[in-house]
């Protein structure tokens, strides 16, 4: 009988489908933006803060591929430098959100009962606070810095991360293998680490893409409103804001960083969507 079963059980090979073109394009775009943000500032002659006063508001062309702004500064260089600020804020946001939401979500889903209720109440409370207004107040009090902006936006993504993680933990607690681990006498922290967290991670990381876009857009909005990084320090929102007065005569100053921001958010959303889609073999659902 054993031989029959062995013969019947094929070494299952899960077919890896090639991701759709849009997803590949999105990943490619993100790679370009990230590499540019990382590497371009290392080149000699990279100076987003000081302009060439002989060529103010020069249109895109050789020398300045995306033109220059009113101060003669290269828009491409400023956009690349702005990417650093945007990704730094987004990174901090995701770190705070993942850590806070991860811990709270695990606790709420694992202990349930009063712990769950208390965490649910706290996160609901946090969600009822108007995010941008609070960040603006904090910036006026503490001054604009990547740390303040990133960690505050991160704080406001904690409720959403908490919900995502809690939902997965709740569904896992009913799964046989978590029960089996209890039956075996595995210590609770070890069960969390070995049985729960690996199953929570895909959902949480997928949501991290969404949080990244939220952070980039929020940072852009703040800078646009003048509550972001101080000029001349470039950030995407800040550059867009600077160019808005000359939209008619020199539209590239605003439109170039705006296009990059839009494409980046779009790419992040595409990737996040793809990671979440059931067509991909999702470990979350097994």
């Amino acid at each position: 009988m054993a031989t029959v079963e062995i013969a019947a059980a094929r070494p299952a090979r899960t077919a890896r489908r090639r991701p759709p073109a849009a997803v590949l394009a999105a990943a490619g775009w993100l790679a370009v933006v990230l590499l540019a943000a990382l590497l371009l500032p290392l080149l000699p002659g990279f100076d987003p803060l000081h302009g060439d006063f002989s060529a103010p508001s020069a249109p895109p062309g050789p020398g300045h591929w995306l033109g220059t702004d009113a101060g003669g500064r290269d828009v491409l260089q400023r956009t690349v430098a702005g990417a650093r600020a945007s990704f730094a804020v987004a990174g901090l946001t995701v770190a705070v959100g993942l850590l806070g939401g991860g811990v709270l979500g695990l606790a709420a889903g694992w202990f349930r009962g009063p712990v769950d209720k208390a965490i649910g109440f706290a996160t609901d409370l946090l969600m009822s606070v108007p995010t941008l207004i609070l960040v603006m107040i904090a910036v006026s009090l503490r001054g604009p810095s990547l740390a303040v902006i990133g960690s505050l936006i991160g704080l406001f993504t904690v409720p959403a991360f908490t919900r995502v993680v809690r939902a997965v933990v709740l569904s896992l607690a009913e799964r046989g293998f978590v029960q089996a681990a209890r039956m075996i006498g595995t210590a609770p922290l070890r069960i969390l680490r070995r049985e729960v967290v690996p199953h929570v991670a895909p959902a949480a990381l997928t949501f991290a893409f969404t949080a990244t876009t939220v952070a980039i857009v929020a940072e852009g909005s703040l800078s646009f409103l003048g509550f972001g990084l101080r000029p001349p320090q470039p950030s995407w929102g800040g550059i867009i804001a600077e160019g808005r007065t000359t939209l008619g005569s020199a539209p590239w100053i605003s439109l170039a960083p705006a296009a990059v921001l839009c494409l980046t958010v779009l790419a992040l959303n595409y990737l996040g969507e793809h990671l979440r889609s059931p067509s991909r073999k999702a470990t979350v659902n097994r």
Partner: peptide
């Protein structure tokens, strides 16, 4: 607990995939 072991009804669910 190791001295008191159980085998569950749904074999696949009781194994971490």
């Amino acid at each position: 607990r190791p001295r008191l072991q159980m085998v569950f009804q749904d074999p696949l669910s009781s194994l971490n995939p």
